[in-house]
């Protein structure tokens, strides 16, 4: 990988380290020497055992916490500038909707903060609610919605400013299997319709394989990228989850998660 910033990657992470409480005796190296480039329109998943630094990586990319060493670029801009310019949208495991706002006004929030006019942001919010198929619930309160519906509102909200990049931290973690699969299809559909780049954190191997162009496998203590598994499933449909390519992908990711040695990994996994 070139260390020269070409500014054409959707996301470019170079030599990133994140050390919490550096110098004190409860020092934690959450991320060690992370290098990652994501092409525009690419869907990548981060997977790895709990505590391997997936959320931290996402938060550093989003400039929600600073990097200890190394650099992060989003569409050629440094992370703080990218955040100021609203170059990404983020969705967490908790929908984190504001109870005191209606569903529509939750989606409007990022636009409101940018100072967009009442009418424009209303139109935009309704458009996005249609995209996540919640038009009928625009004037409901978040607590009147089911978990899956709330999560869809959160996704609509993350799309509000039409950012080229979406950062998603286990957004479907709390959902049942059926809802989850439907949400995955909805997310893929939204991606296709909007051409967004996605970095998606998940604990589910099938989910990572189904959604991604590339699965990034991480391991803990210190958090680092151990494998990158490319996935070539083509257009996803109802049968995709039953295909051999899909199973092969699942196996490859599972092996990568288990085996730390090069020999344990099938040949199609790129060792880092």
């Amino acid at each position: 990988m070139s260390s020269v910033q070409t500014s054409h990657q959707a996301v470019d992470v170079q030599g990133l380290w994140k050390i919490f409480n550096e110098g004190s005796n409860n020092e934690v190296t959450a991320l060690s020497d992370i290098n990652l480039s994501v092409k525009p329109g690419e869907f990548i998943s981060l997977i790895g055992p709990s505590g391997c630094g997936k959320s931290t990586l996402l938060r550093v990319i989003g400039d929600l916490t600073g990097a200890t060493r190394g650099e992060v670029f989003i569409a050629g801009e440094t992370a703080p500038v990218a955040r100021e310019k609203q170059l990404y949208g983020i969705a967490f495991q908790q929908a984190a909707l504001f109870d005191w706002r209606t569903v529509r006004r939750n989606v409007e929030l990022p636009l409101e903060l940018q100072g967009l006019g009442k009418k424009e942001r209303r139109e935009r919010a309704l458009e996005l609610l249609e995209l996540v198929q919640l038009s009928d619930f625009a004037e409901h309160r978040p607590w009147e919605l089911s978990g899956g519906m709330q999560q869809r509102v959160a996704i609509a909200r993350s799309l509000a400013v039409d950012p080229p990049l979406l950062l998603m931290d286990e957004p479907f973690g709390a959902l049942d299997e059926m809802t989850r699969e439907r949400m995955q299809n909805e997310l893929l559909r939204i991606c296709q319709e909007t051409g967004k780049t996605i970095i998606f954190v998940t604990h589910s191997i099938p989910e990572a394989v189904y959604l991604s162009d590339r699965v990034i496998v991480m391991s803990p203590r210190p958090g680092r990228i151990t494998h990158t598994v490319p996935i070539e499933l083509g257009e996803r449909n109802e049968d995709t989850r039953e295909t051999d390519t899909f199973y092969a992908g699942v196996t490859a990711v599972r092996e990568a998660l288990r085996g730390r040695s090069a020999s344990a990994s099938p040949p199609r996994i790129e060792e880092l």
Binding site: R59, G62, L64, R83, E84, Q86, Y88, G89, I90, F92, Q94, A96, F98, L109, P110, E112, L113, Q114
Partner: peptide, 23 residues
């Protein structure tokens, strides 16, 4: 406000007074 809500507002580059009034 939860850490998530605060991070959300930060991701929107909310100004301190927006943080106060909106969250």
């Amino acid at each position: 406000p939860s850490a998530t809500s605060l991070e959300l507002m930060r991701s929107y580059a909310a100004r301190p007074n927006q943080m106060l009034w909106k969250l």
